[in-house]
Design a protein around this nucleic acid. Structure first.
Length: 746
DNA sequence: GTTCTAGAAC
DNA sequence: GTTCTAGAAC
């Protein structure tokens, strides 16, 4: 009996390992989820019920209860698998790269599974906060920031990474199911391969991910009950409405005043508040431009207080993507201290491009922290808004920016958003106001090098411009008359405005183009004219170069395009102005094509041209005293017919595009009218310079003479350079300035 | 003069 | 990958 028993036992002992090698497969379950998604709880729950031998490898506690390294996790997992145990990898594993090394642990004897705890971010955040045991704002903010950051980078696992099975859990119920499934696994059980639980496969998954990633999470420490709200939302499949309500209600909590108007504020998403004109704006300059948050928050409060009376029934809302935002919290506290009416101004956590659909907050107007070129590039709010609005915003912006094509620090540009834009259709945004704030980031253009006197001044100007722009929209829009206008309905006024403007624009260019150009084309061959260069060689004027000559010979024909016609000169706006104001005074004398043709006998004409130029410059200065003009000739002009440039020295124009454009106005290629006259008086003819060389010299600021690597950088610089003009320009009447000299002050 | 665009530069 | 320049065509 005994021996039999022993034999049996021995047999069993021998047989068991054999069987294990043949049939028993270990499983490594890579848990995927943000902090607070419940990874640890999941593995613990499984281990409680499972008859299988599990090892939980938790990076947070692997080093004697403290956070360890990935390498430590890999080692512990390898050891456990070698022991024939199954393993939970309890770390976030949110991106493919993080998972890849654990996937390598798979083998014919080890199945690699993923369990994705893809629960709502707000749930993760609230759990995360609870776990830290801190209720403070900071802690909550930190947790939110961490979770948000991780979810930004989230890449859901795919079978082709090497998983034999992936289980997606999108809510608590899914998690329970998965716990049951894994908990029921005996030592020899396996689970079917494949991907389970993901709601929208393939393309739609990506959409879902995108939506989820963009979803903004409410505050945590200041919202004690997001969990219950989230859960109630999940049990109710028609979640959209719930989402909005819950979000608004939560948002109320972090509004500035906890008393009084909470009802009104919590109803942010309801129809009744849609007709309240609302400006949502990001904090200007505090992100990429690295402006000091304390100073910025003071300025925001100051400007909000100043403008609250000026915006009628409108509201101002400071928006930031995360509840951990320092600037948001600073402003919130300061607004509370100042007792600012929280129904008129409050802070809001959300994506500024999805305030209505995701946050239930209807904002007719949103501000964009733009770059100086008003380009959709870069990151942050600017890219997000251009992206969400689509090409319509780019076109509308270009149109609104006009010739300048860019904005200066401290200024704002209101752009009506075409109804074709998604942002208009979906979010009810009718206007975008681009704002450019001061920059303190040495990596970005126009860095103020910590000059906060200047910086604060510019930031104040920026908010003034922004709020003024909004106030002006409020004044003209009369929001309350027709609430239906504001959401998803195309304001007809907008379309009219746009098409009208386009019409004007087209008409303008047609006018200017067709007049001279068409005729020039017709007469091109019969009228090709010789052009004598400085060294006496001749070349013919190309067809495109003859427009000025044509106008000078027959100005009445171009009546609409010219500003002034006299016996001697014609004054007109340059078709492609290189500055805010750029006029041409064209000599009417035939045969006087360029400066080399000018002799002593033309001196009276040159003086007449100069005087006409000064007269027009003075007139323009009386309208805009900050303008400063310089009058002069190009050494080697492209256009036939002697013409004097009258150009304002801001060089703020989209038409100034390349090195040649700059250098023709800002090197010795540009001959001041006063000097030309003096030279001809003295020597009988104008002295010309080495034009080829001058065109390729480095780009230097016309004021401080600093060098810049390319045109965009140069333009960025000159838009803010406050240096005085170089002394040579200040002499001999080379500049025409306002009587009080306002344009040349340092 | 401008526009267009290839490819250099970043 | 994007920005910017520079050369050709008009």
């Amino acid at each position: 009996m005994d021996s039999e028993m022993i034999t049996k036992d021995e047999e069993m002992e021998e047989a068991a390992p054999q069987k294990a090698e043949e049939e028993k497969k270990s499983i490594i379950v890579i848990l995927v989820g943000a902090p607070g998604s419940g990874k640890s709880t999941f593995s613990e729950d499984v281990m409680k019920t499972s008859s299988r031998s599990w090892v939980r490898v938790c990076q947070d506690t692997i080093a004697n209860g403290k956070t360890g390294t990935k390498a430590q996790c890999l080692k512990k997992a390898t050891d456990a698998l070698n022991d024939g145990k199954s393993v939970f990898i309890d770390r976030c594993n949110l991106d493919r790269e993080q998972r890849s090394e654990f996937l390598k642990l798979g083998s014919p004897h080890v199945d690699v599974h993923a369990v994705v705890l893809d629960l709502p971010a707000r749930l993760c955040i609230s759990r995360s906060v609870k776990r830290t045991g801190h209720e403070g704002n900071l802690q909550g903010g930190k947790a939110a920031a961490v979770v948000n950051r991780m979810l930004q980078k989230k890449e859901l696992p795919k079978l082709n990474e090497g998983f034999s099975r992936i289980t997606f859990c999108l809510n608590e119920k899914d998690v329970e199911e998965a716990v049951k499934t894994y908990g029921a696994l005996g030592p020899f059980d396996t689970l079917p391969s494949g991907s389970f639980g993901q709601k929208n496969p393939d393309a739609k998954v990506q959409l879902g991910i995108m939506k989820f990633m963009k979803k903004v999470d409410p505050p945590n420490s200041c919202c004690k009950d997001p969990v219950s709200k989230q859960e109630s939302k999940e049990t109710n499949p028609s979640s959209k409405e719930q989402d909005v309500v819950a979000f608004s209600a939560q948002n109320t909590d972090k509004n500035i005043k906890a008393d009084g108007n909470s009802r009104e504020r919590s109803a942010a998403g309801s129809a009744t508040t849609n007709d309240i004109p609302t400006l949502a704006f990001p904090s200007i300059s505090t992100a990429d431009f690295q402006f000091n948050h304390e100073k910025a928050s003071d300025i925001i409060i100051q400007k909000v207080e100043e403008f609250l009376d000026k915006i009628g029934n409108g509201r101002l809302v400071l928006v930031d993507l995360t509840s951990g935002s320092r600037i948001l919290n600073l402003v919130k506290v300061k607004a509370e201290q100042k007792n600012i009416d929280s129904s008129k101004f409050f802070t809001f956590v959300g994506d500024i491009t999805q305030l209505y659909t995701k946050g239930g907050l209807h904002c007719n107007v949103i501000a964009n922290a733009a770059n100086w070129r008003l380009k959709p590039r870069g990151g942050g709010v600017n890219a997000a808004i251009f992206n969400a609005a689509g090409p319509a915003l780019e076109i509308a912006t270009k149109e609104a920016a006009g010739d300048a094509g860019c904005i200066q620090p401290g200024s704002a540009l209101t752009v009506p958003l075409p109804s074709t834009s998604q942002l208009h259709k979906r979010e009810g945004v009718t206007h975008v106001i681009h704002v450019l704030g001061p920059n303190m980031n040495p990596q970005r253009p126009d860095c103020l090098n910590n000059d906060y006197d200047k910086g604060c001044k510019i930031l104040r100007e920026a908010y003034s411009s922004l709020f003024e722009g909004f106030a002006s929209i409020v004044r003209t829009k009369e929001f309350n008359k027709d609430p239906s206008k504001t959401v998803s309905t195309v304001p007809s006024s907008l379309i009219d405005q746009r098409s009208k403007r386009e019409g004007v624009f087209d008409l303008d260019s047609n006018k200017k183009y067709k007049g001279p150009k068409v005729e020039v084309g017709v007469e091109k061959k019969s009228e090709s004219t010789e052009k004598f260069t400085g060294d006496g060689t001749a070349k013919s004027w190309e067809s495109w170069a003859q427009s000025l000559h044509r106008i000078a010979m027959d100005p009445e024909k171009y009546n609409k395009d010219v500003l002034e016609i006299s016996d001697d000169v014609v004054v007109l706006n340059d078709l492609y102005p290189k500055a805010q104001k750029h006029l041409l005074v064209v000599a009417r004398k035939d045969g006087l094509d360029r400066l080399t043709d000018v002799r002593v006998e033309h001196l009276p004409l040159l003086r007449t041209m100069h005087n006409a130029g000064v007269k027009w410059a003075t007139k323009l200065i009386s309208d805009e005293p900050s303008l400063v003009f310089r009058l002069g000739y190009h050494s080697d002009p492209s256009m036939r017919q002697l013409h004097l440039h009258v150009v304002s020295q801001d060089f703020n124009s989209t038409h100034l595009k390349n090195k040649k454009h700059w250098n023709t106005f800002n090197t010795a290629f540009f001959l001041d009218s006063v000097d030309v006259i003096e030279e001809i008086e003295k020597c009988g003819k104008a002295k010309l310079n080495d034009n080829e060389r001058l065109m390729s010299v480095e780009l230097r600021c016309n004021k401080c003479r600093s060098a810049h690597p390319n045109i965009p950088r140069l333009k960025s610089h000159i838009s803010r350079c406050r240096a005085p003009f170089p002394s040579d320009l200040l002499q001999n009447g080379r500049l025409v300035v306002a009587p009080n000299g306002s344009g040349v002050e340092a």
